[in-house]
Design a protein around this nucleic acid. Sequence first.
DNA 1: GCATATGCCTA
DNA 2: GTAGGCATATGCT
Length: 928
Amino acid sequence: MPDAQPHLYLVDGSSYIFRAYHRLPPLTNRHGMNTGAVYGYTAMLWKLAESLSKADGPTHMAVILDKGSSSFRNEMYDQYKAHRPPAPEDLVPQLPLIRVATRAFSIPCIEEAGLEADDIIACYTGAARAAGWKVTIVSSDKDLMQLIEDDGSVDMLDTMNDRRIDRGYVVEKFGVPPQQLGDVLALMGDSVDNVPGVPGIGPKTASQLIQEHGSLEAVLAAAEGIKKPKLRQNLIEHADNARLSRELVRLVCEMTLPEPLEALELKNIPEAPLREFLEEQGWKSLLNRMVGQGSRPSGGERPAATAPRVAGPGEPETISVDRAAYLTITDAATLGEWLAEAATQGVIAIDLQGDGGHGLAEGLAGVSLALAPGKAAYVPLGHGATDLLSEGPTQLGLAEGLRLLRPCLEDDSVLKIGHNVKDQLKLLADHGIVVAPVEDVMLASFALDGGRFGHGLDELVKKHFEHECLALKAVCGTGQKAIRFGDAPLGPATEYAAENADMVWRLWQRLQHRLAAEHATRVYRLVDLPLVPVVGQMERDGVKVDRSYLAELSGTFAAETASLEERIFAAAGGPFTIGSPQQLGQVLFDRLGLKGGRKGKSGNYSTDQAELERLEADGVEVARLVLDWRLLTKLKQTYTDALQAQIDPKSGRVHTRYALAAAQTGRLSSTDPNLQNIPIRTELGAKIRNAFIAEEGFSLLSADYGQIELRLAAHIADVPQLKEAFARGDDIHTITAQELFGDAGKDSRGKAKTINFAILYGISSWGLAGRLGIPTEDAKAMIDRYFERFPGIKNYISTTLEAVRESGYSETLFGRKTHFPNIKSSIQSLRQGAERAAINAPIQGTSADIIKRAMVKMPAALAAAGLERTRMLLQVHDELVFEVPHGDEERAAAVIRDVMATAAEPVVALDVPLSVEVGWGENWGVAH
DNA sequence: GCATATGCCTA
DNA sequence: GTAGGCATATGCT
């Protein structure tokens, strides 16, 4: 009997076409008309028809469309769908074609005036279910999810993402079963359909409230007793809107079926009309698939263009973790046994626990080891007493522990696996131990899965093993009451630390094979891994900062800020918090009555730089004062004050920390403090660079690549004019201006410079127009002209995007992959953002690879030149900063320039030269 | 104490 | 339009 059960597929044609339009690349037919959305729609119908013979395939099918634009919901609420933007220009002519395409398949097409497709679908679903049929709604519309039945008799199919939507999916996404979904949707509202909902309530809160109270009416009834004041108030004030919204999202069935269920049977599809339609559209690939396949698409044959298998992180692996089985090692004999086993098998996973201090002052609380999955131990070395009365726990002690560990750590026949090895090398280097050889699962993950997810240990464990590591706060607590790891009891400390080593071991087992298989070894072995000790040493060295000079600057800034404050309050008619954009907006636009304030997401006026500069141009003095105030407080708070606080008391220097696996493109990032965003553009800000000084008897030397990203763009996109200009040493923006405008006046050169940068960032006519302050059409014309003069650029953009859509990732010249999960998103903004990032990543990423290679080569090159006392201190993306003994500057400059200029070799041969500008002096300001 | 919004510094 | 980090204010846990 189940085999004979009819299965009705209801295709939500209207919503499909909109999604297809935003998702699919433009496609034109032989009349020059854009038909991408219709093509997508046709291909989807084809696929559905193909599945006729399959187990869960359709026996009956209908396409449901919206007719007209007004429904009973508009009578209920005149704002319904009022703010929906008109359909895009090149989509409108495609809409009638949907009916033509549907007819070509000889599939019934149902539409009724005054009814939305959703309601018709609800109607047919109800009728089919009453007849004992199964129903599948082909759509991903959340409103329709209300129709899904727990017993599986009604489900949905999202053909864009090729997944079934059932009760489980709804519960996962909205926290409630389909029956309660309408209540959740009513609370959250829908900005696209202009369903009001309740302000301040989004999907999370809506779901939580319905889960808690059971229904919308129950929530409204309980509103008075809700704790959060804002939420309570909104629920009470907007209860009517909530009830209205409930009716708007309710799917109703008040019609007789225009076609009886039986008329929807999916029979053989007559060949002639379909062939005629495909020929008319010129869709050869679909036509070819008809040949030799009888009269309709069927048989479940795969489409001709099958996407290649994309390697990926793979399915998560299920593991069982028994934290109680981890060992606490407190005696030399047991530790000796573990280390002997490590020596025998030649590999061990290691994790270090700091004692909770930071910077150079951080001590070592203990070491955890793993020798096999689940076989892990913690060796406490510096744990203190948990209360004042007792002594510390029994443990080996730091000196004894390190004495025992050292041979293993330094044994070049024992591989040490870690996660974020740089921080561990630094800790051990403080004790004179140089660890080698090492592997780093964080960097392996970065090379394999960059752009897919973060590379922290906890996150990797969750992704690969669906396991939650014991949280550090479960051991040490949080906030004020947090204790240092070195003060934690050994039980929890062992569970936490040993689990980390265990997970490092398991991750390496899982990731190591992928490195070669997915061609990630070059980036991992030649760039990121060898960089670890180099960056570790830079962090340990730190950079000297002139505290008294910074204090002096702070004082000056403070005084000027105070005087500005007075003048601002006088002009504003009273004191307020200048640093609060909310209050500033109220003062400017409400109290002072200035016009024009644009409001942002939370309903506050925008008061950003652009807005204030607009006011300033209108002669509003407060605007100028606030801009000055912002500059000064920014400099003081973020730089002069913060920098003084970051000076390490032991070394008298500032030790930034570089993150090796944070930036999607492969760049480093700098924190605590960030030394990659020290001011330089404004005269006042640039003074801060003078605070970075050299040690007595040394100079600070800065070496930076000139226009490296444009050079790489010229190479990668293969633009002869630009490559030749770089080879000659010409001014690149002048050359561009000549090409584009035929002249190179100041104005033209400026525009050319802007376009050159826009190219690197993934150009859009809208964005360029904003930058240059010109109409979008003019910007579009400039871009077209650019593409015409430099066809390589246009070709680079299209081939890069095609490749990313195909494979899911982009690649640098060194083979570094960056994944773009959103490149096929149905959400336009996400997709376009991914496209811009994908255009930029190979260029920015190659630049990052090159300077990393220079850093890796630098210590040996300096040593070979007898410049052992020259130290590399900072990296700022295209710049390296060194401390050089007086008298060695010229020689160091020559070595550094050479290493940087040839850093890509021999891995990559560039056909543009890399220029390196070098300067030195008593501080960073004069060196740069 | 934590998360979000806004704003601003760098390459 | 790319890639980052971090400050304050604000509202809530």
